[in-house]
Computed example of a mutant assay.
Amino acid sequence: MTDKNPYNYFKQMFTDKAEYNKKMAELKDLPQEYQVVYKEIQKFLWEFTAGDGMDMLQPMYELLAFFQEGAGNNIPVLELVGEDVGEFAENMLHEIQAKTRINELKRKMNERVAKEINKGK
């Protein structure tokens, strides 16, 4: 968020939280098996977020819509995502191409290496 006005920041934060709560209420309308898989994928993706994790919200909302469509068509969740939920989650992480914790760690490592190498030059 680039707006430095604290009022706008808190207003946006409130709006984002309200949207998140609405989506999580929608999740509760899905069959139990879908909820279990969604929560596991969500936990996995949160492990890779950078900063406040806002970069993961839209992909999680898209996953919810995907699950809603699958459930609406009576497709078992493991038929939708495959038996290897971890693989599905990892593929999703790669597709997101959002700023992730891993990317942040790699960036910092590269900065430290460059700093140390250039120190003696």
Rank of each mutant, 00 (worst) to 15 (best):
A65Q: 15
E90H: 14
K106D: 13
R112C: 02
Q97V: 08
L57G: 08
K39S: 06
K119I: 07
Y7P: 04
F14N: 03
Q42C: 15
N8Y: 09
G51A: 10
E62R: 02
G86P: 00
N73G: 02
G86S: 11
E69L: 06
D16V: 01
K106E: 05
V81A: 13
F67R: 06
A50I: 07
E47M: 02
D52P: 00
R101T: 13
P76I: 12
R112F: 12
Y38D: 02
Q12G: 11
K119W: 00
K4Q: 11
E33C: 04
N21G: 05
D16F: 03
K119F: 08
T49E: 08
L80N: 02
L64C: 06
E26N: 12
Q32C: 02
G86L: 14
T100Q: 04
Q68G: 06
L27D: 08
E47A: 10
Y20V: 01
E87M: 07
G86M: 04
Y20E: 07
Y20N: 08
Q68A: 06
I75R: 01
T2A: 15
Y38I: 09
K99M: 10
E62I: 00
L78R: 05
N103L: 13
T15C: 06
I117R: 05
K43A: 11
V36A: 13
Q32S: 15
E40Q: 15
E33Y: 06
R107C: 05
F14G: 14
Y61C: 12
R112L: 11
K22V: 01
P6V: 10
E104M: 03
F10Q: 02
E104H: 10
K22M: 07
D29S: 15
G70R: 07
A98I: 11
Q68K: 06
R112Q: 08
I102L: 12
E69A: 06
D84M: 04
W46N: 10
L45K: 08
F66Q: 04
V113I: 13
N5R: 01
G70P: 01
I102C: 02
E69R: 02
Y61A: 14
T15M: 08
E33I: 03
E62P: 01
H94N: 13
V37H: 00
M56D: 12
A25N: 05
M1W: 04
F66W: 00
E40W: 12
L45T: 02
K106I: 15
L93C: 03
P76C: 01
E116V: 12
D84E: 03
I75N: 00
Q35H: 09
K23I: 02
E83I: 05
V37E: 03
V37N: 11
T100M: 03
T49M: 14
Q32N: 07
K121R: 09
R112Y: 12
G72M: 09
M24F: 09
V77G: 04
Q12E: 14
P31S: 04
F88H: 13
K119G: 10
P59N: 12
N118F: 13
F67M: 13
N118C: 05
H94F: 14
F66A: 01
K4Y: 15
A71C: 15
K4L: 15
F88Y: 07
